[in-house]
Design a protein around this nucleic acid. Sequence first.
DNA 1: CAGAATTATGTTGACATCAACTTATTTCTG
DNA 2: CAGAAATAAGTTGATGTCAACATAATTCTG
Lengths: 160, 160
Amino acid sequence: MREDLPLSTTHEVRDRCLCLQLQRAARSIGRRFDSALRPLGLSHGQFSLLTALNRPEPPLLGAVAELLALDRTTLTANLKPLERRGLVRVESDAVDGRRRRLVLTDAGRDVLVEALPVWRHTHDGIDDLLGSLDSAALRDALSALTWELSREETAAVTAP
Amino acid sequence: MREDLPLSTTHEVRDRCLCLQLQRAARSIGRRFDSALRPLGLSHGQFSLLTALNRPEPPLLGAVAELLALDRTTLTANLKPLERRGLVRVESDAVDGRRRRLVLTDAGRDVLVEALPVWRHTHDGIDDLLGSLDSAALRDALSALTWELSREETAAVTAP
DNA sequence: CAGAATTATGTTGACATCAACTTATTTCTG
DNA sequence: CAGAAATAAGTTGATGTCAACATAATTCTG
């Protein structure tokens, strides 16, 4: 070990880094939902995306990207497999030609109706797993963190 | 809206799904660290990986994958760009020919030494951002969640 | 109202992620 | 000790992720 990189540094990052802990937890829980949803041919991300599109008015691409805290270009990419399967349709907005509306098709709704009980069951299992841990508090903390980070991002761009 | 897919379902998922909240938070914080580490040519994942390799004995591939809660094949892929840059070397284990040891090179240590203050500074900023929110408690909850999920995974495979 | 600034999105290239399948070694069993 | 079982990794193909750059449409300004 070099003097400027003691083992304690490794432990410092492992024990303190919220980013690392978040990536680990996100990957672990993502795999869990992927596995549960596999019979339906959906990944956890696809499930979240389809759910986000179930609204009275088909939402705008940018709005969905923001809701999912996802890069717009990533969302464009994620739509491709769903479009191919006919679960989603992308349309130009009637009023503003730049905008794209993400339309959940009837086939998309059918898949979603099948997926929902799977999601509920899987989530119940995770809540059980967490036991004494307050999963609602955890969710709220994550939501707050995402919100604060996105606020700063916007501020950085908007700053004079 | 269809009767079997009311808007309330969309809100149920948005408000309850721990998986969605985790992915959102992980993406947001990941972008933040990516941006901070960009001058060094490192992503947040590469930083975590290099840090994990800073040990007296070069760790085994499988052990690192488990530590990062990462699929083994993903880790193999992630090593490629770091190997190309000469920051990491993969060696066969002397004792067991199946095993691979992940060696952090001197160049890798140099980059890590540069990256550490950037990581500390970025993390301080996030702790400030969280304010009243207990970031240590959040980390511990995430760690516990990852642990429980991985425990179940192992059990499922090992089951008689 | 014409050109500039802004806004919303698309394209490309590099890397990240995982499942399913395959290969190489080691260990276990008879 | 030879074949079977188990273990550790590699390979392939599909998808997810983002930054940098480019395009198209709208709005703003003089």
